[in-house]
Structures are given as C-alpha cells and as structure tokens.
Measured scan of single mutants.
Amino acid sequence: TGIVNVSSSLNVRSSASTSSKVIGSLSGNTKVTIVGEEGAFYKIEYKGSHGYVAKEYI
C-alpha cells in the first residue's frame, strides 16, 4: 500500500512508460494498493483492473 504524494493529480498509465496511454488520474493523498514493480513504475490496482504510476510520486 502506498499514498499518492502530489499536490494536484497523478496520471495512471496503461503500461510502465511515460509514453503509454493515460487511463485515469489519482488525487494527492489517495491510498493505492501496489501489486508489482516495473522499472520506475509501480503496478497498482485501479478500477477493477491494473494501472501504472511513477514510483517517485508514491
């Protein structure tokens, strides 16, 4: 489990790349469930599926 550490919002992406499609966003202080790691990204549970967020903001 981690907490989103941004002042505005954090993009949730379809894969572990900054060039991948943005599938949603999370507000600061949102609790997320981390299910894996891939490079500079965490794989998280997101809306019944999975998404990826940059580690530096969790």
Rank of each mutant, 00 (worst) to 15 (best):
V22I: 14
V12E: 00
V6N: 09
S25P: 05
R13S: 06
I34L: 05
I58P: 01
E37Y: 07
E37I: 10
F41L: 02
L10S: 04
V6D: 06
I58T: 03
A40E: 14
V32R: 01
Y42H: 03
G39S: 05
S15I: 06
N29F: 15
T30M: 10
A16Q: 03
V53D: 00
V4N: 04
A40I: 10
R13L: 15
I58A: 02
R13H: 15
Y52H: 01
K21D: 12
G39H: 06
G36R: 04
N11S: 13
V53I: 08
A40W: 08
I23P: 00
K31H: 10
V35A: 05
S14M: 15
V6G: 11
V53P: 00
S15Y: 08
A40P: 09
G2A: 08
G36A: 08
S27V: 14
G24Y: 04
T33Q: 10
S9M: 12
A54I: 12
Y57I: 04
S9I: 11
I34M: 04
G28W: 13
K31V: 15
K43V: 12
K21E: 15
I3W: 13
R13T: 10
K47R: 11
S49I: 12
N11E: 15
S27L: 14
E56N: 08
G28S: 14
V32Q: 01
Y46C: 04
G2K: 06
S19K: 13
S20P: 02
V32Y: 03
F41N: 02
G28Q: 12
S27W: 12
Y57T: 05
I23F: 03
S14G: 08
E56H: 12
V35C: 08
A16W: 05
S7L: 10
Y57W: 10
L10D: 02
A16K: 03
T30P: 03
I23A: 02
K43C: 09
S27A: 14
I44A: 00
G24R: 02
I3R: 11
K55A: 04
K47F: 11
E37A: 08
G28C: 11
K47S: 09
E37C: 09
S19G: 11
V22D: 04
I58E: 02
K43T: 04
K31L: 14
A40R: 09
V22N: 05
S8A: 11
Y52M: 01
E37D: 08
G28L: 13
E38G: 03
G39T: 03
G28M: 13
N11D: 15
S20Q: 02
I3M: 10
I3Y: 14
S14W: 08
R13D: 01
V4T: 07
Y46M: 03
Y46A: 01
V6H: 12
I34C: 03
E56P: 06
